[in-house]
Design a protein around this nucleic acid. Sequence first.
RNA 1: GCUUCGGUGGCGGAAUUGGUAGACGCGCUGGAUUCAAAAUCCAGUUCUUUCGAGAGUGUGGGUUCGAGCCCCACCCGAAGUACCA
Length: 938
Amino acid sequence: MGEYNFKEIEIKWQKFWKDNDTFVVRKNTKLPKYYVLDMFPYPSGAGLHVGHPLGYIASDIFARYKRHKGFNVLHPQGFDSFGLPTEQYAILTGQHPNKTTKENIDRYRKQLDRMGFSFDWSREIRTSESNYYKWTQWMFILLFNSYYNIKKNKAESIIKIIKKFEKQGNENINAYCKNKKLSFDSSKWNSYKDYEKENILQEYRLAFISNVEVNWCEELGTVLANDEIVNGVSERGGYSVVKKNMKQWSIRIGAYSERLLKGLEKIDWSESLKEIQRNWIGKSLGASIYFEIEGSNQNLEVFTTRPDTIFGATFMTLAPEHKMVKNLTKPKYKKQVLKYIKSSSSRSEKDRMSDVKSITGVFTGSYALHPFNKKKIPIWIGDYVLANYGTGAVMSVPCGDQRDFDFAKKFNIKIENIFNKIDVSKKAYTEKGSVVLSNSKFLNGLNYSEAIKKVINELEKNNIGKSSINYKLRDAIFSRQRYWGEPIPIYFKNGMPIPLNIEDLPLLLPKVKNYLPTKDGSPPLGNAKFWAWDTINRKVVNKNLIDNIEIFPLELNTMPGWAGSSWYFNRYMDPNNSEEFVGSKELNYWKEVDLYIGGSEHATGHLLYSRFWQKFLFDHKLVPVEEYSKKLINQGMILGSSALIYRKVGTQEYVSKNLLENNKVETIRVDTSLVNSKNELNIEGLKKWIPEFKNSRFILENGKYIVGRDVEKMSKSKFNVVNPDKICDQFGADTLRMYEMFLGPIEQSKPWDTSGISGVHSFLKKLWRLYHPIDNFSINNQKASSDSLKTLHKTIRKVSQDIEDFSFNTCISSFMICVNELKSQKCNSKEILKPLIILLSPFAPHFCEEIWHLMGYRSSISNEMYPIYDLKFLIELEKEYPISFNGKMRFKKSLSLDLSENDIKKNILKDQRTINFLNGSQPKKIIVVIGKIINIVY
RNA sequence: GCUUCGGUGGCGGAAUUGGUAGACGCGCUGGAUUCAAAAUCCAGUUCUUUCGAGAGUGUGGGUUCGAGCCCCACCCGAAGUACCA
C-alpha cells in the first residue's frame, strides 16, 4: 500500500480495539483515576448529524490523552432511552417503544463506532432497561421516605420526623414545610387516623402527591404544557383547554435551593451556565411583613425586597388566586371581583405573559392598616401579582416600583413620594443609590442599605415582620401522563399512596394495546386492564379487585425524562451491580466525574436536577461527594448553512439571488445537497426532489440560479444537515475528528463548512507521505537534525499545554505547522515520528495506530506514555525583537542579563517579576525565547 | 428591561494573557506538473499607496514607553430570563 487508505485503516483498528478490549476499564489498579463523561444521547429516529459528535470527539481526545498520561480512565457511554418521540412513534404505528428504541440505539451505535471513540461499551447503560430503572424507582421511594431537616441542612428519613410528631407534635421540628398553618401537638397526632397522618406527612416528604392546577385538553386527552397552548386553545388542533386540578407527584427541590446555589461556587463550570442556574434558583433577600386588616383579626403577609420603602405603600395587591380573596371581598364588590377572577383564570399563563402592558385589577372593598402609621391602605386584586411567588400578595409602593406606579395611575390611587429631592410624577424611582428617604418617620435621612437594616429591626422588635429570603425555584412536577417512562412504584390503599417494598422492584412497565390516554382521562397505563398490586403475593395483577382487601390500584403516571438521567453517572462506575445502585468500593475509587462535556441547553433541566439528586443521595451517605461534576464544558452548537431560493409572491417564479431587486419574494429552504460550492442550484435535481417544483420557472443570472445562504441550527426540517457517515466515507473518521476540533473553540457555536475539510485531510496525507517516500513505509533510524528536534519539542510543548486548556483547535494548527516544517527539513526520522505519533493519537487514533504498528510495535499505542518536551532543544530558539523607546520600562516577567542555561530554564518555567532597567539607555533589541523575553541588547 | 458571553481580513479563527496583530486552514491569484482534469508542489494574499510609507482589531475617550487584551461611555450581535414585588 502506498497512499493513505483511511477506509482500510479505520475498519482494521476499530476491530482490533474491540477484539482486544483495548478500552475496557482496568479494575484493581493502583493508577490514579480519571472520569470523562459525555451527556448520554437520546436515541432519536433521525440519527446523528455532524453537530452531535462534537462533544464526544472532544471528550474522547481528552480521555485518550489522560490514558497516555498514566491515568486509569473511565470513559463510558449509554442511552437516555425513555422519551416522548419514541412514544409518539408508537402511537402512530403501534410499534412497541422497546423495539423502536432498540433500532434507534443500533443505528446510533453504528454511527458512533465509525468515529473511533474509546468508549468502554461493556459499561453501557440504558435508562429504559429494568435493571437500570429499578434503581431509579428505588431512589424515588427513598425521596418519598425522606424529609428535609433545615437545621442540619440535609435530608433525613421520614421516620425521624414521625417519632418527633409522636413526642412533640410539629412545634420546633426544623423540617422544611411550605404549609405554615399546619399545627398539632403529640396527642392530636396520635389521635389521627392513618390517612390523616399521611396527609400531613405529604407536606414534608421530598416526593409527594398533591393537587396541582394543570392545562387539560379533553379532545387530545392529555395535559398540555403552557407553551403548547396558544390563545387559550391547543396549539395542535386548536381544541379548547381547561384548567383542571390533577393529582400530580412533585419533588421538593426547593428545599435544596440554598445548597444548589452555594454549590456553584465550588465547581468549575462556565460562568454563563452558573448564572443561568443562579437566575433560575432566583434568590432574593427581603422581608416578610404582616399587615393587619381593618375589622378582622387576620393578617396579610407580604414579601418585599424593599422594606425600606414601606412608608410609600399606598395600596396592597393580591394575586387573583390568593386564598384570602374571598374573605376580603366586601359584598358590594363581590360581583366584579368574581368576574375578574374568572376572566383572569381563563387566560393562559402564556397570554398573561405576552400581554404585560394592559393593566387590570379590581378593588375588594377591604383595607389593611399600615404597620407603623396605621393609615388605611386599600386592598386590590391584580393579575400582575403572581400567586406562586412569595406570598402571592404585595405591598404596592408606586413611587418605588414601576408596576405599582402604572397600576396606581390607572386606578387613580394615591402616590406618596418618599424619596428626598426626586421627582416621581412621571415614573417610579427604582434605583437603590445613595438617595435618602424622606416622609418616612424613623427612616428619614437614611439611604437604601441603612434603611433596610433599621426597618427590619423595627419589624422584628414589634413582631410585625422579619427578614426573609425567597427563591423562584419551584417544586418539580414529577408525573407524566405517558407510557414510555419509569413506572412510579406506588399503589393506593384507600387513596393513600404506599410505596412498594424494595425487594419487589423493579416494577415493570405493563403491556398495553394503545399508547394514548384512556377515554376517562387516565394516563396510558390505564389501558392495562387492570394494573394493580397484590400485597399478599407481591406482584402485579391484572384484575379489577381494588375493593379487595389485598389488591390495590397502582399509580398510572410515569416519571419524567429527567429521572433516569439524574444519577446515571454513578451507575457507570458499576453498571451491572444487581445488589446496589453502585458498589461502595467502586464509588470510593471513582468518586465523581472529573470532566463532563455536554450542551448548555440542559442548564435548568438535567444539570440542575442531577445536582439536586446527587445532594440528596449524599445526605443519605450513598455517594461520597456532594457535587458530582468537578468540571463542565459546554460544547457549542455546530450550525448548518441553509440554502434559500426566492419565489415571487403569488407566482411559480423563482428569482436568482442577485436579481431580487425590489421583487416581493418568499424565501424557501431547499436541500443543501442540491447546491454546489459556488452556490449554484441544481435545478433538475430540485425538480426531482419535490414534485412541487416541476412546473416552476427559474430566472437565472449568467445561466445559473444562485441561492442565498443562512446560517442556523442544523436540523432535518431545514434541509441543512450534514451526515457524519458521508464525511467518514469521503475523508475518514480521523479527518472528521480533527476537522471538528479545528473549526474553532469547543465552547463556541460555529458554522459547518465542508469545503474547509480538505486542509486537515491533506495534513494527514502529508504526514503519511513523509514516511512513505516511495511506496512502502520507510523510516530513518539515524539521529534527527537539531532543526527537527526543535520542531518536535516545540510541538510537544504547545500541544500538551493546549490540550490541558481544552484548546483543541490550536493543537491542530500546531500539528500542521510541525508537519510543514518536518517536510521542508525532509525529516523521516524515527526519533521524531515516535513521540509525534503518540502526541497525535488522541486526535487521529486510527492513523496513529497504523503507523505505530508499521514501526513494529505490537500493543496498542494507547498504552504508550505521553512524551515530555526537553527545554534544551528550545532554548536556542531565539527570536530577535527590535524595539525602540525611551524612559523606564516595566515587565511582568523578569529579565536578567547574562543568563546561564539554568537561569533561562527558571525564567521560562516560572513567572518572575520586575527587572532593574535601565538608567536612560535604550535597548536596541530584546531576545525572546519561546515567547519569553530573556535578554536585551544595547 | 435585566444577566452572561462576544465583536479581529472575503470566511473559520490565532495572538506567548500588556510586547512584531492577522498564526493555521479555507477561499482567491499566479506559476510548476498534466493532452486534460483530479491530486500534488511552489509563490502571493488586511487595507490604502504617488512604492517612500501610511492606516488598521465595532465607536469615542482614558491609563501606559507600549493596548485586540486593562478602565469609562456608547453601538451591534448571540444566549438565558422575564409582571419574581
